[in-house]
């Protein structure tokens, strides 16, 4: 038996290899205790399927998204230009990431700064692997027949028009996908975008994640599926706030697939 491999670009380059894809982990994927499980699940899937990939490891830095949206264009561009230098240095062509904020920034905003890559969100990548038959689901897994609702991430949905890929991935698990009233183009934000993740909300009468969690719970779903690290945090906090941790779980798509694959 062998162990899972997580090659870095530096290691690959040293041995003269170049992977098919760069897996962009992102800051939440690297540091957030809960969200690290998503990174690990995705890496296991990549190993299992035999996708040729590498990560930047310590050479990766924040894409700069929260700084840019908070108004600090200098800091954003410092981050972006440094990242682009690293990626161009490795001659990277294709990037896959689980974070819609990283996805949006690298795909849409790095080209103006000289970084041109094919950028794919992990929901799209996983859907592709399922369609190609490379991921074979056991069926009858943990989620079979369960009610699951999908919370659209703004930066995946409205920002980039990716609505169906995550739903196709969920449907492949043989579950009952139930939609919230506000979904797809009308999906309600979890409250963390635009830099809100890093500060207290402005004065109001409710927190946005509570409003959204209530909507998710109203569907009767026992799992809230997400495709974004910020959404994962916000929805998990919402479920905790509503004292429903015991019967409602918040999972990322990659975790759900990995569970079903038994890895």
């Amino acid at each position: 038996m062998s162990t899972y491999k997580v090659p870095t670009m530096a290691e690959m380059a040293a041995s003269g290899d170049s992977p098919e894809i760069l897996f962009w982990v992102g800051c939440a994927g690297s540091f957030d205790d809960r969200y690290k499980a998503v990174t690990q699940a995705f890496v296991k899937i990549l190993n299992k399927v035999g996708v040729s990939f590498a990560v930047l490891g310590p050479e990766e830095a924040c894409t700069g998204d929260p700084a840019r949206r908070a108004g600090n264009e200098f800091l954003f561009q410092m981050q972006a230009v440094a990242n682009i230098q690293v990626m161009n240095g490795y001659n990277i062509k294709k990037v896959v990431t689980a974070c819609p904020h990283c996805f949006n920034t690298i795909k849409n905003e790095y080209p103006a700064l000289g970084g041109n890559y094919e950028v794919i969100h992990h929901s799209q990548f996983l859907q592709h692997l399922i369609n190609e038959g490379k991921i074979v689901l056991q069926g009858g897994g943990e989620f079979k027949g369960k009610k699951i609702t999908f919370h659209d991430s703004c930066f995946l949905g409205r920002a980039n028009n990716v609505y169906e890929a995550p739903r196709e991935v969920i449907k492949a698990l043989d579950v009952e996908l139930v939609e919230m009233k506000r979904c797809r183009t009308k999906g309600l934000c979890c409250g963390a975008g635009g830099g809100q993740m890093f500060k207290e909300p402005e004065p109001g009468n409710k927190d946005i994640n509570i409003e959204r969690t209530e909507e998710a719970l109203a569907t009767g779903a026992t799992t809230i599926a997400v495709g974004c690290p910020f959404c994962l945090t916000m929805m998990s906090d919402g479920v905790k706030n509503k004292d429903r941790e015991h019967d409602v779980k918040v999972y990322d798509l990659a975790e759900m697939l990995a569970k079903d694959m038994g890895i």
Binding site: S2, T3, C27, Q40, K44, G57, P58, C62, A67, I263
Partner: peptide, 24 residues
């Protein structure tokens, strides 16, 4: 280089656990 206060040298620590796990 992260919005949170973590050491950049710890960025790749997440992989340690998974690298020790055996492929199922």
């Amino acid at each position: 280089f992260s919005p949170w206060k973590f050491s950049p040298s710890d960025r790749f620590n997440w992989a340690e656990k998974v690298k020790e796990e055996e492929v199922k």
